[in-house]
Structures are given as structure tokens and as C-alpha cells.
Computed example of a mutant assay.
Amino acid sequence: MRTGRQGGKPPWKAEAGVFLAVAFLGAGALGALQPATGIPDEVVQLTQFGPAAGVLAVALLWPERVRTRLAGTVRARRDTAWAGPGRNRVGLLLPTGPLIIALAATAYALLGDGDARLTDPRSLAHPFTLVVLAQLVGACGEEIGWRCYLQPLLRTRFGPLAAPVAVGVLWGCWHVQVFAQRPAYAAGFLLATVAMSVVLGLALEGVRAHRLLLAGGFHTLVNLGMLLTMDEEDGTVLPMLLLGGACLLAAVPWVLRARRAARPGVRRRTAPDRIPAVRHGAR
């Protein structure tokens, strides 16, 4: 069994490479398999489990490292107090999802000449309770890879803002089908994934308990909001641009609050929220 070290340094690039390769290829394979399963896309998309497959692949090679990353016990590159008190941040994360949808849907209603789509949950082809549960499971299939594994991995090398930005770019590019749309649509989507990744990264910085449910819950609320209030799935550019703008607006207070929390004096008060180092050397 490999020790996971080369020249005394953890192979973080190898970990990231294996994860991303399997996440991308696995998503494509699962997407091709979906029609044969009969599972409707509206309920859940099997491609969402590509990142979970990526985590599993890395776990087969470096089980101890994956275990510590998923547990949130790795030491970040910089002071985790940059993001402020963890308990306060967690309480603000889930409401940020509906706020994003409210901003985007309101702007769409005002700018879309009445074309904004409002869908009655009872009109869906499948029971809404089933859709909600399936969406949560699918979102967790993504978030165990992006926020619970890759985010902590990149935080061992990059700062508290650079790491989630990088994750957001990779998360957006993972949705390769988006790039078959118009450039403005793809740009709006990438803006949304990066901004949401910043929100999630700052909200979960230093948090160890329930990270998967928190990230998956936020992701689910955004997905359900888009399902019920927007019509971006058919390639319409305006709602996607508005979604990206709404995500950016929602991310700005998180960044400002995090910078304020990093000032001298505030950092000392947030010291208990720092992630402890792992003694066996996983980073």
C-alpha cells in the first residue's frame, strides 16, 4: 500500500487528478446509463453521483487521507478564523439559498416581460416530496466530492477565498453540457457556480459536523428554486445571467464579513473554531 508521500510531501495533485478524472468520466457514464434505468431527470440526474464516484476512487488509493478530509480534520493553509465564527456562519448558509432564488426570480419577473415561470409543485409529473428527497440525495452525491473532499484538499494549499473559487470553476466546468449553450449562458452559469462555491467555502470553513447535509441542503434549495421559478433548462439566457448575478450579490456579504472577521482582535475570539492539525500527517 502506498504511503501517499513523495519526497516528504502529500500527493495532493495526484489526489485531485484522480478525483477529477473519475468525477468527469463517471458523470458521463452515469448520464449515458440514465435512459436505461427509467429514472426521470426531473427526479434526479445520475450524473450527480460522478463526484461521489471520484471520492470512492481516491479512497481506494489513499483511504486515510480521504477519511480525514471528509471528517474535516485537515489543517488549512491559513488561519481558519478568516471566515469568522463557525456557528454563526452555519446559521446563515441555508437561508442564502432561497435568497438567491428570490433575487433571481424577482429580477426575471421585472425584466423578462412576464415570461418568468412559476410552477405549482402539484403540477409536476412526480410527487413533490419524492422530488425533494431525490434532489437532496443527488445534491449530496455532488457535495461529498466538491465541498467535503476537494474543498478541504485545496485548502491545504490555497487560501480561504482562492480554494472555493477554484472549486467553483471546476464544479462549473464539470457541467460540460452547459458549454453547448450560448457563451452568455455558460458565463452566467460559471458565475453562479463560483459565487455559490465561495458562499459554501466560507460558510463551512472550519466546520466539522454535518457538512454534507449543510452543503447538500443549500444545493437542494437552489435546485428546487430554479425548478419552480425559472426556465433556464431550455437554454434561455436571461434567467441564467440573473441567477449568476444573484449568486454574486449573495456572495459579497460573505466575503466582506469574512474579511472583517480576519481583522486583529476578531481572530483571537474565533480561535476555538480553528481546525486542529492531524497528528498522523494527513494534510
Results as ranks from 00 to 15, higher is better:
residue 76 A to I: 01
residue 69 R to N: 10
residue 187 A to I: 07
residue 250 A to S: 09
residue 191 L to T: 15
residue 147 R to Y: 10
residue 10 P to D: 15
residue 163 A to Y: 04
residue 7 G to R: 14
residue 217 G to T: 13
residue 69 R to P: 00
residue 107 A to M: 10
residue 169 V to F: 13
residue 35 P to Q: 02
residue 134 A to C: 13
residue 112 G to H: 02
residue 201 G to K: 02
residue 70 L to P: 00
residue 201 G to S: 12
residue 164 P to Y: 02
residue 92 L to R: 08
residue 198 V to A: 07
residue 269 R to L: 14
residue 122 R to E: 12
residue 193 T to H: 03
residue 27 A to I: 02
residue 35 P to H: 02
residue 61 L to D: 02
residue 17 G to Y: 12
residue 113 D to I: 06
residue 210 H to T: 08
residue 238 L to W: 05
residue 210 H to E: 11
residue 41 D to L: 10
residue 201 G to V: 10
residue 92 L to H: 12
residue 190 L to F: 12
residue 233 E to R: 12
residue 249 L to W: 01
residue 129 T to R: 04
residue 257 R to P: 13
residue 104 A to S: 15
residue 118 L to P: 07
residue 146 W to C: 08
residue 59 A to Y: 15
residue 45 Q to N: 10
residue 168 G to V: 01
residue 129 T to H: 00
residue 181 Q to I: 07
residue 24 F to P: 03
residue 168 G to W: 00
residue 23 A to C: 06
residue 10 P to H: 14
residue 143 E to A: 04
residue 78 R to T: 15
residue 122 R to F: 07
residue 60 L to H: 14
residue 86 G to N: 03
residue 209 A to F: 03
residue 252 V to W: 13
residue 275 I to W: 11
residue 97 G to A: 11
residue 202 L to M: 04
residue 117 R to W: 06
residue 78 R to F: 15
residue 10 P to A: 15
residue 75 R to N: 01
residue 22 V to H: 11
residue 113 D to L: 13
residue 118 L to W: 09
residue 256 L to R: 11
residue 147 R to D: 08
residue 260 R to K: 03
residue 270 T to N: 14
residue 70 L to D: 10
residue 186 A to P: 12
residue 179 F to D: 03
residue 167 V to H: 05
residue 248 L to I: 08
residue 160 P to A: 03
residue 206 G to V: 14
residue 29 A to D: 06
residue 42 E to C: 05
residue 57 A to G: 04
residue 132 V to T: 06
residue 53 A to V: 01
residue 211 R to Y: 07
residue 228 L to H: 13
residue 100 I to G: 05
residue 235 G to H: 14
residue 5 R to V: 04
residue 191 L to G: 15
residue 79 D to H: 11
residue 162 A to S: 14
residue 112 G to L: 04
residue 119 T to W: 00
residue 276 P to L: 10
residue 14 A to I: 11
residue 129 T to I: 02
